[in-house]
Design a protein around this nucleic acid. Structure first.
Length: 949
DNA sequence: TTTTTGCATGTATCA
DNA sequence: GATACATGCAAAAAG
């Protein structure tokens, strides 16, 4: 309650420290406050303060004499000259020293009166408990006291300007409470409510920065426990962590919402939660971070520090710890702590006498917002704030939305691992009505009196659909972007383009270190805002990353599947293909050979590394080279095949070839050779690009997740979609979008049952079929190539520049007599796969290229031939292609289809064979065949993975 | 055939 | 290691 008053003589921004007005500083008058005073802005840094109404150091508006509310003794207003002669009462008025002492004694004796907790060298806010939870009662008795003496610092925000700061300086006294005379003469307390997240409580109120925070005074709470007050304090705080009262005072024509919030303020190292104190070791960054939430944006050096209150002022968003009540006494994770804006409060509160008690909030997951109509409720929240249910069937629950419409849900639970999983069923109409989607946030509050549940929501306007695997891809560095993606509501992830940082954003779906700040700054309605990595001036430091990683764990997995609004999305600057080109297995990485159905697959545990783009060539002699371009002179230099250049590379780095270790050295390749190689390289890239068609324009990405991708992959049509949703696992740098290897087709984390060797799920069956097919095709092609090579080699050698690249040729089959050059390019990855199955092997590509090389024509298809082949028995075909076991494995194929074998490029008969199988399949699985046909139209894409389920 | 419902499972997170 | 929870899956129900 009443405290000695103090004033700040200097700006509390540690980076500023400008003298306050009256003390030589130059401060600006800001926006009007409800109190009638004006915000005061430090002209130097823009930090906003609220004028001390009773203090003349800030151009007092309400200075003057006051009478003690208790004894009537006339007191001075409280200017510096009389600083110790009075206390301000949070209920209004002032109190002389004598009465102050009396009230303190009363408080200590346990009477329900405004509590005064002497505090030395500490910073506390003491909350009053029981009666505070009722808004009305709260209005009658002060319940929030900020005690600060000596060197302590107290900063409180005013409700309508949450980020206004008040400060108290050493040796002075203050009360943060304020009264407002209302027209009818009654008084209504207007509480200064900092938008504090309790979890962030260590120091949000503290704006004196680290130095102050780490001062001995700030860490001596335990040493200074007041036995008469501490227990009370804890209890008070725990019992009255929050009560948001929405009192609508009709002040003339102005509807004025008054929020009342009790909130403990703690010594920096102490977090009071659940009625107990938790000593929390906070990293400096966390401290800074937490403080940042409640500070105006620190000026960037050289930025000019222009402070625009209308633009930069934080919206009235409140981060409230939900009330400790109900069963379980609130062990809610911070992610569920409700953040609610004044706007929302006003919206919810239609009744001027009602008190809104925010309970919790939840970011909608994909399944929450999906058509299934089930909203999974956090267990602790459900048990704490919703009616108790003993049966799984639960009970109907009516919840009113902010517009007053009532929604009827079924609140129930499912037994789950000896626990319960609470769900709200029947939410689809509500979700749809409110147009909510994954990433949006629903808030649950309670209206007191009455206990009616109300739900509000916040839209996440800039949400990005980044499936796990895609995030993983980013984290692995396979997806690059100079841009950033946002996750949900106030969650911000920043992709700054370097893998180390990318790693940290994996799953970063909740608070970015600055997200709350940014949220306040730019998203009054809770809409997400976009934050550049260098919001505060530079690339995030290590602390940021650590924080990000830490924070990302909180909500990461819960909110990854966010959607991307096309209009808000940013285009990622690299295609998958381009990114993949830059990825190489780590030099030290040893692939693990995994045997799947007798086939070997490489898996790399280590993430790929970035490599500077290089071109691999093979000379007429069969020798392979790697060429890399000097970043200085742009000349191409030859490097050993195994060398991986990480980033910038110049001739001087060429330790492998002393003759070319200088930019002045002539280029080894003749211009013609170079042109030829580059031409081939571009062609290869073009072809890859055209095949994959996976320019990662996130804006065009739809909401499909990995399931869709997997499905697409199964049906082999990934590459057919110009705006394909790309989300493959990239454990291996050679995995390509559309890769259908066992790694990539595996559902994302958590999805689906674990696949064991005998698993017969669709995915496993599909994978098996696919690999069988692939291997068959490979075998067939190999033999065909061997035959064809001999007969066509001469023809190839005499060909002009081929239309296609020799991407898929093995070095041995490369054109070694290419015109004007003895250097031909090849795809190193293909070469690397010798001896193993290429995880990125795609029959369509192979076939296509083979076709290109061999005939330069698309595979010819004769209808007569097709019909003829189609009339042949399937068994013949199966035997012919070694598919007997497959047929058996599939139990006669009643529920699954045979995989379509490859379309031999130059064989009309094989094409016919393929269609023969297709025709048989069509009888069983029209849908599959539809896909198959589509695939055929796409130059045999279907051949890869026609696998109906 | 589609939708609903209930449970199971895997992963992330917490303690 | 325990737990929460997102979501997959399949049986049941409904259309």
């Amino acid at each position: 309650m009443a405290m000695p008053m103090a004033v700040a003589k200097r700006c509390m921004n540690p980076a500023c420290g400008a003298p306050a007005t009256g003390a030589g500083g130059d401060w600006r008058k800001g926006w009007p406050l409800r109190s009638g005073a004006f915000a005061l802005l430090c002209d130097k840094c823009g930090l906003a303060y609220e004028q001390f109404v009773f203090c003349d150091i800030f151009h007092l508006k309400e200075s003057g004499w006051r009478d003690c509310s208790f004894c009537g003794k006339r007191l001075h207003c409280g200017c510096v000259a009389s600083k110790n002669s009075y206390d301000l009462l949070d209920s209004g008025g002032v109190q002389c020293v004598t009465c102050m002492k009396n009230s303190a004694a009363q408080s200590a004796s346990g009477q329900v009166v405004p509590k005064l907790f002497p505090c030395q060298n500490n910073l506390r806010i003491f909350g009053k408990s029981d009666e505070v939870l009722s808004g009305r009662k709260f209005e009658q008795s002060p319940s929030l006291v900020l005690d600060s003496r000596n060197d302590d610092l107290a900063i409180v925000n005013k409700s309508n300007h949450p980020f206004l700061v008040k400060s108290i300086e050493a040796g002075q006294s203050s009360s943060i409470l304020r009264q407002k005379e209302i027209e009818n003469g009654s008084r209504q307390i207007k509480w200064e409510q900092p938008p504090l997240s309790i979890g962030d409580m260590g120091k949000p109120f503290l704006t004196r920065s680290q130095s102050a925070l780490e001062s001995p005074q700030c860490t001596r709470r335990d040493d200074n426990k007041d036995p008469t007050t501490d227990s009370t304090t804890s209890e008070s705080i725990s019992e009255a962590c929050l009560s948001m009262s929405l009192g609508i005072a009709n002040n003339g024509n102005r509807m004025e919402a008054t929020s009342t919030v009790e909130r403990p303020i703690l010594s920096p190292t102490t977090v009071i939660a659940e009625g107990r104190e938790l000593t929390t070791a906070l990293s400096p960054f966390q401290h800074a971070q937490r403080a940042r939430h409640f500070l105006t944006r620190p000026p960037r050096v050289g930025e000019g520090a222009v402070f625009d209150p209308t633009r930069d002022m934080f919206p009235h968003l409140r981060v409230a710890r939900p009330p400790a009540e109900g069963r379980g006494r609130n062990q809610l994770l911070p992610r569920y702590w409700p953040r609610i804006t004044d706007q929302e409060l006003q919206q919810i509160s239609g009744d001027s006498n009602s008190t809104i008690v925010p309970l919790f909030e939840k970011v909608l997951s994909a399944s929450d917002a999906g058509r299934i109509g089930r909203l999974v409720l956090p267990k602790a929240c459900a048990e704490a704030y919703f009616p108790p249910i003993s049966q799984p069937e639960g009970r109907p629950l009516t919840i009113q939305d902010a517009r007053g419409k009532e929604w009827h849900f079924q609140f129930r639970f499912w037994p789950n691992n000896n626990s319960r999983m609470y769900v709200l069923e029947g939410v689809t109409p509500c979700i749809q009505s409110l147009q909510l989607q994954a990433g949006d946030t629903v808030t649950f509050s309670r209206i007191e009196p009455g206990g009616k549940l109300v739900m509000g929501f916040r839209k996440a306007t800039n949400t990005v659909s980044l499936p796990d695997s895609q995030i993983s891809a980013i984290a692995n560095g396979s997806l690059l972007s100079e841009t950033l993606f946002s996750t949900a509501n106030d969650n911000l992830g920043v992709v700054s383009g370097y893998p180390g940082f990318l790693q940290s954003i994996k799953g970063a779906a909740d608070l970015h270190p600055s997200s709350l700040y940014d949220h306040h700054m730019n998203s009054a309605d809770g809409d997400v805002s976009w934050l550049k990595a260098d919001k505060f001036g530079s690339r995030p430091d290590e602390g940021s990353l650590q924080f990000l990683q830490k924070r990302s764990r909180n909500i990461g997995s819960k909110s990854r599947r966010f959607l991307m609004d096309a209009e808000d999305a940013m285009e990622l600057k690299l295609t998958w293909e381009e990114a993949q080109e830059l990825l190489r297995p780590a030099p030290t990485a040893k692939p693990t050979i995994v045997m799947i159905e007798d086939y070997e697959f490489e898996e790399y545990d280590e993430p790929p590394v970035f490599a500077k783009r290089s071109i691999f060539t093979i000379r007429a002699t069969g020798e392979q080279d790697q060429w890399i371009q000097c970043d200085d002179c742009s000349k191409w230099r030859r490097l050993p095949l195994t060398v991986i250049i990480a980033s910038k590379w110049t001739c001087t780095d060429n330790s492998w070839d002393p003759k070319s270790c200088s930019c002045s050295a002539p280029e080894e390749l003749t211009p013609k050779e170079l042109q030829s190689v580059l031409q081939q390289y571009e062609e290869m890239r073009r072809r890859k690009g055209s095949y994959y068609g996976l320019k990662l324009n996130v804006a065009e990405m739809d909401a499909s997740n990995l399931d869709a991708l997997a499905t697409a992959a199964v049906f082999g049509d990934v590459g057919n979609q110009g705006t394909a949703s790309v989300a493959t696992t990239t454990k291996h740098p050679r995995h390509r979008p559309g890769c259908t290897c066992i790694v990539c087709i595996q559902p994302p984390s958590g999805k689906g049952p674990k696949h064991n060797p005998s698993c017969t799920c669709n995915v496993c069956m599909t994978v098996r079929r696919r690999f069988k097919t692939l291997m068959m095709r490979k075998k067939q092609r190999q033999s065909e190539r061997e035959e064809a090579e001999a007969s066509k080699k001469m023809a190839w050698m005499n060909r002009d520049e081929p239309e296609g690249s020799n991407l898929s040729r093995s070095p041995q089959t490369l054109d070694t007599t290419r015109d004007s050059s003895d250097v031909a390019m090849f795809d190193k990855t293909a070469d690397m796969n010798k001896g193993h199955i290429d995880l990125n092997f795609h029959p369509a590509v192979r076939d296509d290229h083979q076709g290109q090389h061999g005939t330069q024509q698309p595979r010819p298809v004769s209808m007569v031939g097709l019909m003829e082949v189609a009339s042949r028995p399937l068994d013949n075909y199966m035997k012919q292609n070694g598919l007997t076991s497959l047929a058996g494995e599939q139990g006669g194929g009643s529920s699954s289809t045979a995989t379509v074998p490859p379309a031999p490029v130059e064989s009309e008969e094989r094409a016919s064979n393929e269609l023969r199988v297709a025709s048989v399949e069509r009888e069983r699985e029209p849908d599959a065949m539809a896909v198959d046909e589509a695939g055929d139209n796409q130059q045999d894409k279907s051949g890869d993975d026609v696998a109906a389920t």
